[in-house]
């Protein structure tokens, strides 16, 4: 008689579960990805290449990159500062701050966009003040940057908080007791310890910054060749029945996603190694007393 472990499923159950999982992946993730490239190349290489060369598309790519490049340094600074404060210090309102960091996850991006229109828009709270100084935030680049900042804010902090909590404060205290200044401590001890986690957060935040549609859509005003990022541009082209153009632009985003995935996998692998080191660095010997 075949002996089976009590907790083991029958092969049938295992196969069914695997089939469901793989089927789901193919249907909802694999097929759309393939469809994007199939549609983009439907008329061949030349039209695809031409569509990408189009002036507004190029501008959209440039703008998308610009927004991400501006947003990421802010995000890194805020994310590291917030994670450091939450992970390493006790202060009043800490749990409130922890909750607030998650707010962008909880709020619909469209609502977030609308919030900024309410604040900075022509009829918003700060509208008259901004107009009197001739500062344009809504339907312009600053608004898109602010909206993207808001949306991508949690990624880096969320990634760093558990990492920094696990690492504790002792290494930093050791650095200070050895005479390091605050800056030396951060640069030589804190940052090297969190670098892979930070990079992971940056990759996620970057992917989101480039792909963000809802919030940016609300504050951008969809001005062609001016305030259209790549995701918005895809929508416009599609609505104009320019299928090749839309899918060509989408394929750029999809490629970006693939690059992000690869980078993410590499960083994850490095992080797993670091975590191993972290665990190994914890005391293994235990006392009897």
């Amino acid at each position: 008689m075949k002996v089976r472990r009590a907790a083991a499923e029958t092969p049938a159950v295992r196969w069914t579960l695997t089939a469901i999982g793989v089927g789901f992946l193919i249907f909802f993730l694999g097929l759309p990805l393939i469809a994007v490239f199939v549609e983009a190349f439907r008329s061949g290489w030349a039209p695809y290449w031409e569509a990408l060369q189009e002036k507004d598309t190029l501008h959209a790519v440039g703008l998308t990159v610009l927004v991400a490049v501006v947003v990421l340094p802010f995000n890194i600074a805020f994310g590291v500062a917030a994670a450091w404060a939450i992970a390493k210090f006790e202060f009043w309102g800490k749990s409130l701050l922890t909750t607030l960091i998650d707010l962008p996850f909880a709020v619909s991006p469209v609502v977030a966009g609308l919030l900024f229109i309410l604040i900075f828009g022509a009829n918003g709270w700060m509208g008259p003040l901004l107009q009197s100084h001739d500062i344009k935030i809504i339907f312009a680049l600053p608004g898109m940057i602010i909206a993207t900042l808001f949306i991508t804010f949690p990624y880096i902090a969320r990634e760093l908080i558990p990492l920094m909590q696990a690492q504790g404060r002792e290494e930093e205290e050791a650095a200070v007791s050895l005479g390091a200044t605050g800056f030396q401590m951060f640069w030589r001890v804190t940052l090297p310890n969190i670098k892979w986690g930070l990079l992971y957060g940056v990759i996620l935040a970057n992917a989101r910054a480039m792909g963000e549609f809802g919030a940016v859509s609300v504050v951008s005003g969809h001005i062609r060749g001016e305030t259209n990022t790549l995701p918005l541009h895809v929508e416009i082209l599609y609505n104009e029945y320019n299928s090749v153009g839309a899918f060509a632009a989408a394929s750029v985003l999809a490629l970006l996603a693939l690059v992000t995935l690869i980078a993410k996998t590499i960083v994850e692998w490095r992080m797993a190694k670091e975590t191993e080191m972290l665990n190994a660095a914890l005391p293994t010997e235990k006392t009897a007393s």
């Binding site: 050791a174 007791s177 310890n193 972290l278 005391p283």
Partner: peptide, 16 residues
């Protein structure tokens, strides 16, 4: 940092 004190931690706190 200015006390010139050597501190040794229970869990070593070596820079990993």
């Amino acid at each position: 940092r200015e006390r010139n004190v050597g501190f040794v931690f229970q869990h070593y706190a070596l820079f990993r």
